[in-house]
Simulated assay, not measured.
Amino acid sequence: MGKTIRWGILGAANFAKTSMAPAIHAAKGAKLVALATSSREKAEGFQAFCPELDVMTDYDALLARDDIDAVYIPLPNHLHVPWAIKAMKAGKHVLVEKPVAMAAEEIDELIALRDDTGLLCAEAYMIVHHPQWARAKEILSGGRLGELAHVDTFFSYNNPEMGNIRNRPETGGGSIRDIGVYTYGSTRWATGQEPREITHTNIRYENDVDVFAEVNANFESFSYHAITSMRINISQSITFYGDAGVLRMDAPFNAELFGPTQMHLIDAKGRETVEYFGDVNQYVLQVENFCAAVVSGQEAHADYPWTLENARGTQSMIDRIFTTDKR
């Protein structure tokens, strides 16, 4: 039996309660030990599935504990980098929610600290741990679609609650930072290509936060179109168009939660093959892969599916989108 990685969580975010904390609790090789939160009432939902969870009200005190090996950080976006730095300086491995930073250059300090300490620090980018994305990358790299010509992706949900952190500029809200990381990052990861230029943006703001963003770009060998929105009913898809085939993913980002995790592959003769991946928990897989990388040591960190360098590439694209936008 391998070493068990003992986890602490900084902040009782709802997403942590519903998705990531249960995943840490369920993952092989992981043990959920402590939660730091400003409100003990928020901890009740966590203790419902993990009764032995130790609840604290001091983030720094959690980081000082000797019985914590790794921390998960689901705090508001603008707090990700400062607390990730504190955690690594306290000797903890770090899994920090997306987007890991508010600007690409902020990630450089995390990369340097990761390399200096030998600790694993990564963005919580769960989709690359799901087998459907490994399969998509295999299809694309194997030439099943021929020459890739265009990628089109869509991700939306409706969140009109203005008090929510996603609707507040001071906490780094907006659809681009919240879900654009998926539409942009998944394309980069699956194709292995980077955007050469952002050719067009159509971004609508409310309360100085983007609630709708249409982005066109040219990658190295294909054109790209993406829409993200926090004011459209929940929907998501991504389609890769090649000269010899088409690949469409029905639930690329919230596998099974949005709908069946199906992949449609249409060949040059119009024949369609559907692959279904079943009820796979990508959050549990993410935690298990993280723990395995920690146990394997620093040399294995470069093989972790989503490195800080991967996250920096997506953040760089986001930075360019905001720079290109002429509102």
Rank of each mutant, 00 (worst) to 15 (best):
S223Q: 14
H25G: 01
F219G: 00
E106Q: 09
M162E: 15
N14Y: 15
Y157W: 14
W189C: 00
K92P: 03
H25Y: 10
T314P: 03
S223C: 14
Y304Q: 04
D267Q: 04
M1I: 14
V55G: 03
S316G: 13
E299A: 12
A149W: 12
A21V: 09
V246F: 07
I318K: 03
S175V: 14
A112R: 13
Q132I: 15
A292H: 12
M263A: 03
I176Q: 10
P260R: 13
A64F: 11
R144Y: 13
T323A: 15
G29S: 09
A16Y: 10
K98R: 11
P252I: 08
P131Y: 14
S186A: 14
D178A: 15
Y72R: 06
L75G: 01
A302C: 04
R65V: 06
E275Y: 10
I9M: 07
A103H: 13
D208F: 12
V295F: 07
F222Q: 08
L32C: 07
A84M: 09
A302R: 08
K28I: 05
E105C: 14
V94D: 07
L53Y: 06
P51W: 03
Y276D: 15
T273H: 12
T37V: 04
A90T: 02
K98M: 04
Y205K: 02
A302W: 10
D210T: 10
V151I: 07
G146T: 03
S235H: 13
R135C: 13
A217Q: 00
I176A: 11
S39I: 02
F290K: 08
D243M: 10
G163L: 04
H25K: 08
N281K: 01
F253N: 02
I176G: 05
T187C: 03
Q298H: 15
E194P: 04
Q132D: 12
A104E: 05
K28A: 07
A61M: 06
A36I: 02
T261V: 15
N167L: 02
L113K: 11
L247P: 05
L79I: 08
A217K: 00
S19H: 15
T37C: 05
A16H: 08
A136P: 09
A122N: 01
K42H: 11
P74H: 10
V287A: 06
I24K: 03
C121E: 02
C50N: 01
A61S: 10
H150D: 06
L62R: 05
I73S: 05
H150Y: 13
D67I: 07
N158E: 12
R40E: 15
E170L: 08
D250Y: 14
A149C: 12
S237V: 11
N207F: 13
H129R: 06
G172A: 00
G11A: 04
M102P: 00
V100L: 10
W7D: 05
V81R: 01
V71S: 07
L63S: 04
D54N: 14
G192N: 00
E206A: 11
D208H: 12
P131W: 13
K42I: 05
E288Y: 07
V209D: 01
Q47V: 05
V94I: 09
N218I: 13
R320I: 09
C50G: 02
